[in-house]
Design a protein around this nucleic acid. Structure first.
Lengths: 338, 338
DNA sequence: TACCTATGCTAAATCGATTTTGTAAAAATT
DNA sequence: AATTTTTACAAAATCGATTTAGCATAGGTA
C-alpha cells in the first residue's frame, strides 16, 4: 500500500530508473532511447498509475512550481475574483498557488513574504499595501520574479498591472457631468497609494476640463485606521456640511458601502436627492436599490496579464519584456444611482 | 548568493551535519549533545539566518505540513471566513493550507482531490458537494486524514463539524411564530445534502410543535442548476401564488439574496408586507434595508473544531476521539426584516 | 586490422535535509 | 587491571526524483 516510485516502474519495465526518468520527461529522443522501450515504459507508468513525488522533484530541480499570491483580504470580492482567475490560469501553466492575506496588517505583509520564501515559491503575485515596500524591494533585489497588481511603488522596478484609474474616474465623471450635475463630492482615504492619487487626479482633471471649479471642501479624506462608526459619522457630517452636493463619487467600494449606510440613515434617496458613483464593483451594488453605478475593474484581465508577466520572468530563456507597466481600461456600469 | 544549507552551518560551527540537525530539532538532549555545543550551533544558525529547505525536509520526513482545503466557492462569504480562520489556526500548528474551490462543478471535486494527493497534503478539510462522495470515500479508505465541514455523508465514517441546522431553523421559526406569524413559507433547493434536509425538518417540526399545519404549497424547492433569471421568476411566482404568506424562511443565503431581489421587484416592504428570515449571514444582509434577520453560522467554531479534529488524526500517538460528529449551535441575529 | 564514433542504455552523483548506525574516549563496574 | 557502559559526537544510509558521466556493443573509417 505504499507509494509507487520511479524505481518500481523501472523494475516493472525492466530498465534503469534513469531511463524511466528520461522517457517520462520527454527526453527519450534526446537520450536516444528506442521507441520500443519508450512506449513500454510509458505503458507501464500509465497503467500502474505512477505519479512522481512532488517533493523529490522539487528538491532535485529546485523549482516548486508554486506561486505565492499575497492579497489584502481574501474575503473581499475583488481579491476573491482575482484569486480565482489566477488559480485557474496558473493551473493551466502547471503551477499552483498558495494564498496569503495581509488583512490590512501593515507588518504582516513582511512576515508573509518571508513565510512564502521558506516555502520556496517560484514567484510572487502581490497587491501591495503601504507597509510592504521594503520587503518587496528586497525580493526584487534577490532577483525573485515578482508582479504587482492593483497598485505599485514607483521606486520599485518590477512589472505591474492595474486598472487605468485616471481614465476610470474620468468615465464616471463624464457621465455625471453629462447629466448636468456639477456639484460633485469625492470621498477617499488617506492611504498613500498610487491608485488613489490617480483617482483623485481623474476627479480634479475631469472638473477642470469642464470648467467646473474644484472645491477643497468637496473632497473628503477619511482616515484609514478608524472605527467603522467614526467613519460613518464623519461621512455624514461631510454630506450635511455640503448640502449643495448633487452627486458623490466614492473612490473605493469600501467607502461606497459606508456611503450607502449613511445615505440610508439620512433618509436621502438616490439618485434624486443625491447621485452616487463608486469605483470598483461589489455584490451589494448590484442588489442595493436602485443599483449603484460603478467603475468595474477588469479583474480577469489583470489576473491573466499578471500571470503572463510572471511566467515571462520564470521563463529564463525569454528575452526582456517590452512593456512591464500595464494599465487596463475599466468599464463604467450604469445602474440606478447615477 | 546561494542558499545556506545545514552542511554550511555544520562547517561554521565545526561539527557534523547530523549534530546540527539534532540540535535544531530539539533532539539535542536526547542525543546528549553538550549544552556548550548546542548553544554554539543555535547561535550560528540564528545569526547566519539559516532556514531549512522545506522540500528536503518533506522528502525525508514524508510530511508536507500542508493541509488541503476544498470549498465550494472561494468567493462566498461563508467559505472566505472559513478559509481565513482555518489558515490562521493551521499556521499556529505549523501547517499551511492550499485552497481549492470546486466552483459548484460536480466532477471538478474529484480532480481536485487527486491534485492535492499529488501535492502530498497531509490531511484534508472538505465542505462536501454532491458529486464528491466517491472520492472522499476513497480518501478515507486510504486512511488519509479527512474532516468534513458544513455537511457530511452518512455513509462515510470520518469526522465532521457543522452547525446544528435543525436547531438553527427552530430558533428562527420560534421567533416568527412568537410574533404571531403563522403563514410561513420555506424556500430551499433540490440538492440532496444532509444540512438542507435538516433545515427542512426544523421548519416542519417547528410548525407541528405549534400546531400549525404544514402546507406543501408553502414549500418551494428551486432547482439548483438553473439560470439566475429563471430562479427569480419561479420565486416570484411562488410568492404571487401564496399571497397569504406573512413570512418567508430562506434556507440559504444565496436563496435569500434572490428573495431580496424578487421582493424589491414586486414592491413589497419588509417586514410588514412580508417578513424575511435567512439561514447563513451575508454582508448584504447587514446593509440591505431594513436589515435581514439571519441564523448566523459559528464559522470560527467550525474552523477551529475542524482543525482540532484533523490534528488529532495527524497525531499518530493520540487515541481515538470520543466524538467525531460535532454540531455547533447557530445564533439568531435579529434585524429589521422579521 | 586497428581505431574512432554513434548507439542505447546503466551506474552513480546530486538536491538538503533526517535518522540509524558506528566509534573513539571517558567513566563505571567487576 | 580488565571489561563493560556511557558519553558525545561523526559517518553513512535514506527519502525519490534528475542529471551527468560511463560503458558495452555495433557500425564506419583509415
Amino acid at each position: 500500500m505504499k507509494r509507487l516510485t520511479l524505481k518500481d516502474v523501472a523494475k516493472m519495465a525492466g530498465v534503469a530508473p534513469s531511463t524511466v526518468s528520461f522517457v517520462l520527461n520527454g527526453k527519450g529522443k534526446q537520450m536516444r532511447i528506442r521507441d520500443e522501450v519508450a512506449t513500454r515504459i510509458m505503458q507501464v507508468a500509465e497503467k500502474s498509475g505512477y505519479e512522481p513525488h512532488r517533493m523529490a522533484v522539487n528538491l532535485r530541480t529546485g523549482q516548486s512550481k508554486t506561486l505565492g499570491l499575497i492579497v489584502e483580504s481574501i474575503s473581499g470580492s475583488f481579491f476573491a475574483s482575482l484569486a480565482k482567475t489566477i488559480e485557474t490560469e496558473a493551473e493551466r501553466k502547471g503551477y499552483n498557488v498558495v494564498y496569503c492575506s495581509t488583512e490590512n496588517n501593515a507588518q504582516k505583509g513582511g512576515e508573509l513574504i518571508r513565510m512564502l520564501g521558506r516555502q520556496m515559491v517560484d514567484g510572487y503575485l502581490i497587491t501591495p499595501a503601504p507597509g510592504m515596500e521594503k520587503e518587496i524591494q528586497q525580493l526584487v533585489h534577490q532577483h525573485k520574479p515578482v508582479v504587482l497588481m492593483d497598485s505599485y511603488f514607483p521606486s520599485i522596478k518590477t512589472p505591474y498591472v492595474l486598472i487605468n484609474n485616471f481614465d476610470g474616474v474620468q468615465q464616471g465623471m463624464k457621465h455625471l457631468i453629462g447629466k448636468g450635475l456639477t456639484k460633485i463630492g469625492f470621498v477617499m482615504v488617506d492611504v498613500k497609494l498610487i491608485q488613489l492619487e490617480e483617482r483623485l487626479r481623474g476627479y480634479t482633471t475631469a472638473l477642470k476640463e469642464h470648467k467646473i471649479p474644484v472645491k477643497k471642501k468637496h473632497i473628503l479624506q477619511l482616515q484609514y485606521h478608524r472605527q467603522r462608526e467614526d467613519s460613518l459619522n464623519e461621512l455624514q457630517a461631510f454630506i450635511e456640511a455640503n448640502p449643495e452636493l448633487d452627486a458623490i463619487f466614492f473612490s473605493t467600494n469600501y467607502l461606497g458601502i459606508l456611503g450607502l449606510e449613511v445615505i440610508a440613515r439620512m433618509g436621502l434617496k438616490m439618485p434624486d436627492d443625491i447621485a452616487v458613483l463608486c469605483f470598483d464593483d461589489h455584490d451589494i451594488f448590484r442588489l442595493y436599490p436602485p443599483g449603484i453605478s460603478v467603475i468595474e475593474q477588469p479583474i480577469e484581465g489583470i489576473a491573466k496579464t499578471a500571470i503572463d508577466l510572471l511566467m515571462h520572468q520564470l521563463d529564463k530563456n525569454s528575452g526582456p519584456m517590452k512593456k512591464t507597466a500595464i494599465e487596463l481600461p475599466g468599464k463604467f456600469i450604469l445602474r440606478g444611482s447615477a
